[in-house]
């Protein structure tokens, strides 16, 4: 790609292009767009990212993003300590929070076990989870990981690690999505839904 002979400019383009989903051309457009703005505005932009690197920390308990050593969710006393929901990343916390169906605590693993990508149990927050649970046992652990092979492997690993602690380990239900039609559901999901069918009465008590 044709380069402009200005090293601050090229530097900025390169940085932006290193983000996922942004190619060289988009980065170039973004930088040119920024250059059109007031100097003050550009400085605010830069400052926002500097603050990000200085001020953001991860909650010591659940590893969610936080401004304080213990995040808002963990320090919220109206949330139950008896329930811990294990998720892969922070986006999943946001997704589960949106449901308004969960009032326990979270634990963000920051990834799932995948030897193909070189990720083992100790590369993610599994040891921290085990320590946390051993210290303060909840009544139930909800595994809310992707329903992929790697997700299942992570579920199984954690389940085995917790086996001697006498804690109820559950996983979110897998099956036909709400509002979906049976005929368009893939065979695997539908098959699993049939195997794991639930008493109709249970569906009545849902909000």
């Amino acid at each position: 790609m044709h380069q402009i002979s200005s090293s601050p400019f090229n530097n900025a383009v390169e940085k932006l292009a290193s983000l996922p989903g942004i190619g060289n051309k988009t980065a170039l457009r973004l930088v040119l767009q920024l250059l059109n703005r007031d100097q003050k505005e550009i400085e605010e932009f830069g400052a926002a990212f500097v603050d990000l690197s200085h001020q953001i920390q991860y909650c010591n308990s659940c590893f969610n993003i936080s401004d304080t050593p213990i995040c808002d969710l963990c320090s919220n006393t109206s949330r139950s300590n008896d329930l811990i929901c294990v998720v892969e990343n922070i986006l999943d916390v946001i997704a589960i929070e949106k449901t308004n169906q969960f009032s326990g605590k979270f634990h963000v693993l920051g990834g799932i076990i995948s030897p193909m990508e070189g990720i083992g149990p100790n590369d993610i927050k599994i040891p921290e989870l085990i320590a946390r649970i051993t210290e303060n046992p909840p009544k139930e652990i909800i595994m809310a990981l992707s329903t992929t092979m790697e997700g299942d492997a992570t579920n199984f690993y954690i389940y085995k690690k917790l086996a001697n602690l006498n804690i109820n380990v559950t996983t979110i239900a897998r099956g036909v999505g709400i509002g979906d039609e049976i005929e368009y559901t893939d065979e695997l999901t539908l098959g699993r839904s049939l195997l794991n069918r639930i008493p109709f009465q249970n569906t009545l008590s849902l909000k």
């Binding site: 076990i113 030897p115 070189g118 149990p121 492997a153 992570t154 690993y157 085995k160 690690k161």
Partner: peptide, 20 residues
């Protein structure tokens, strides 16, 4: 790949292998 990584890092974790 897990077996290979055990070999490279000279370690072994039975629980990790059990999962697979």
């Amino acid at each position: 790949l897990l077996l290979k990584s055990f070999w490279i890092n000279r370690n072994f974790d039975k629980d990790s292998l059990d999962v697979w």
